[in-house]
Design a protein around this nucleic acid. Structure first.
Lengths: 144, 144
DNA sequence: AAGATTGTGGGAAAAAGTGGGAACCCGCAG
DNA sequence: CTGCGGGTTCCCACTTTTTCCCACAATCTT
């Protein structure tokens, strides 16, 4: 289970070091894709396989699922960490997520999300405001 | 069942010692998450697992559950007490809960809440007032 | 009053994160 | 065919943060 939040820096060579806790869990091979809400998704190899399978099982007949497929699959790249535990962020993904120098890694169950630090701050501020509504939902699913 | 209220200090290295009664009940591994009302939740490992399982069952296709997952999962960290029975509070959580030097541990059934001492005082004052009002109301309708 | 237990502080060792240089592999032009 | 950029990849070294450990203060117990 991937959890936690870490801020790292993307250098001029488009490298970022994976937070140590994530590096262990993700292994040697992982996949970066465009994510939802202007962030990138980072999956461990087998977690990615599961996602890919699920996507394939969706009907081709509907235009929206086709679009969703393209969205997730076309932008996907397999990456491996270098000797120092860093990965390279491809240009088009860097652009897509609007990454600057400061980026945030956020663990969300089976994936890691990569955000531009300031975008993350904004997003977080937004969802924190909705905390009350969330509390109700938590009650519904019986989590708390 | 975790009960009681203890005030401890968060040192410059962001360490706090767990109150001894909680330390025993929480075990070697525990999870800190963002809580509701500007405090942090501290779960024992298995109490956390129950919450996590429920969260995993939610789909990431919907915007609100995505936000919900991010809020709880990215805000969570697994921690272990050091040799002196202290845990480390990550930066973003310290900031979220507005923790200063003095923090309060409050046992609430299956979790421990961590509050900034002054925020706790305010909150307590508020709910105590509400309790009085509620008691009066209950008295009026003859419930007590 | 002495000893045990709990909470706090700080110093030294280790590790994580970052930057930058050197080697390497392309394609391209002379 | 040879030599010259441009862009990667690999590797090393520095800095900062974290982790581990020990010592002291305060409190409770016997």
């Amino acid at each position: 289970m991937l959890i936690g939040e870490y801020e790292h820096t993307l250098d001029e060579k488009k490298r970022v070091t994976l937070p140590k806790p994530f590096a262990k869990a993700l292994g040697k091979k992982m996949v970066i894709t465009r994510g939802l809400d202007t962030c990138l998704f980072l999956f461990a190899e087998d977690a990615w396989k599961k996602v890919a399978e699920k996507l394939q099982s969706l009907s081709f007949a509907q235009a929206d699922t086709r679009g969703f497929n393209r969205f997730l699959l076309s932008g996907a790249v397999e990456v491996s960490p270098d000797g120092a535990g860093r990965i390279l962020i491809p240009d088009h993904q860097k652009e897509f997520a609007g990454l600057k120098r400061a980026v945030v890694f956020a663990g969300v169950s089976d994936r890691v999300e990569i955000w531009d630090a300031s975008a993350w701050k904004n997003y977080k501020a937004r969802i924190e405001k909705q905390a009350d509504a969330m509390a109700e939902k938590l009650g519904e699913i019986g989590a708390l």
